[in-house]
Amino acid sequence: MDNQFAYLFGDLLFLIIWLVLFIYRKDLRKEMMYMGVFVGLAGALAEKYWYAVDW
């Protein structure tokens, strides 16, 4: 398989765990969504405008 899909595949594995927790723990959904959106956006912005991969 093309290596460009490796990270996407890793994300999907994490997403499975994410979905299990999201479905099972209704009381923690808000925390998961807030954290996910904030860190996801921060990561995407940091990658685009700030951090370069150096290791």
Binding site: F14, L15, F22, E47
Partner: peptide, 22 residues
């Protein structure tokens, strides 16, 4: 291939925020 974008941060932070509690 380590360039990542939105999805890794979304999934890992969501899981980590609540995995201990579960």
């Amino acid at each position: 291939y380590r360039n990542r974008g939105f999805s890794p941060g979304f999934t890992t932070s969501g899981v980590t925020a609540v995995i201990f509690k579960e």
